[in-house]
């Protein structure tokens, strides 16, 4: 065993990269759920974003256009969910699951001619002297643009939900859609916008995988990241900054277990491999355990109208 082989700075740096796709998807889902909609189709929207972004980046040669296409692809797919659940009032859980299955199939169809191709390379952002700061430099200032945009998005969502009128309306719609409707807010419109935002974020997360982290296209490459993102939203009790924490924790354990193995640590690999999922389950159990008054943390923190269909006639 040679733990000195693990460089903490490189570990933290790769943690940030590993966490970015789930962070993006989880932030999107947070907004969706804050508006009172439960979209279980994150995995499907991520993988669709991954192939849309990859295909367009390859065709145009521009990763930036690729990311825009990924966001658009995810948003368009989420609109199917939005139409079904908001206008036809279909069951959100069933529709979300169907969206995941549809996204997985659609993406492998779209990706047929893109296997084995390398996408245009994305340079790391050159932050000049900042990157040379000992310790902090390699950890914080040696990444691609998407990592910083994701962090900015996280803070932006926090500020929007807490300080702005738009954030207040979104929360009102999620907490009590009847009251929001009585006040004259367009519940369905707000929710559709939130669903599209969620789809766009999930798409970006998928494209981060296929364009930067791997970078290549393989079928089913998200490999369950969308489900982790869903769990992280609950884990974070619907708070953006805790979503950041959850994503980094998950990304951190994933990267750490690979590094510990590479360094030859004698902990059985099985435990290391399952540890990220185990931690997620433990936190979800704690969140769901009833507290005084018979309600769990999760049900107290969750938007009150989460998963409930709304129609103006009701």
């Amino acid at each position: 065993m040679d733990l000195s082989a693990i460089s903490p700075t490189l570990l933290l740096a790769s943690l940030m990269v590993a966490a970015t796709p789930i962070l993006l998807a989880a932030l999107g889902e947070l907004i969706v759920e804050k508006s009172g909609v439960l979209n279980l189709g994150v995995e499907g929207m991520m993988i669709t974003g991954a192939i849309c972004g990859f295909a367009i980046a390859v065709e145009t040669g521009s990763p930036v256009v690729g990311f825009i296409a990924a966001a658009a692809g995810g948003a368009v797919l989420s609109l199917i969910f939005g139409f079904l659940t908001q206008y036809l009032l279909s069951n959100q859980v069933a529709t979300g699951l169907a969206l995941t299955l549809f996204g997985l199939g659609l993406s492998s169809l779209m990706g047929q001619s893109y296997v084995g191709i390398r996408p245009p390379a994305i340079e790391k952002l050159n932050l000049g002297p900042l990157a040379d700061i000992p310790l902090l430099g390699p950890v914080l200032f040696n990444h691609d643009l998407m990592v910083y945009l994701t962090l900015a998005l996280c803070v932006g969502i926090w500020a929007t939900l807490k300080f702005t009128r738009a954030g207040l309306i979104l929360r009102a719609v999620g907490e009590n859609h009847d009251a929001a409707h009585a006040l004259g807010y367009k519940v369905v419109k707000v929710r559709l916008l939130a669903i599209m935002f969620g789809g766009a974020c999930a798409g970006l997360g998928g494209a981060y995988l296929s364009l930067i982290r791997v970078p290549q296209w393989t079928e089913g490459m998200t490999a369950g990241a969308g489900w982790i993102a869903l769990a992280i939203v609950v884990f974070a009790s619907w708070r953006p900054l805790r979503v950041l924490l959850g994503a980094y924790l998950f990304g951190g354990v994933t990267v750490l277990q690979l590094n510990l193995q590479a360094a030859g640590l004698a902990i059985p690999v099985e435990y290391l491999s399952m540890s990220p999922y185990l931690i997620t389950i433990v936190v979800l159990v704690i969140m769901s355990a009833p507290r005084k008054g018979g309600k769990s943390r999760a049900s107290l923190a969750a938007p009150a109208c989460l998963g409930r269909a709304f129609h103006a006639s009701q």
Binding site: S7, L11, L209, V214, T218
Partner: peptide
Amino acid sequence: IFTWEDAAKEADAAQALIDQ
């Protein structure tokens, strides 16, 4: 890594090894 085929995991494993 306990899988035959998971591009993201394989990439992360490769990166961890290269980092070391």
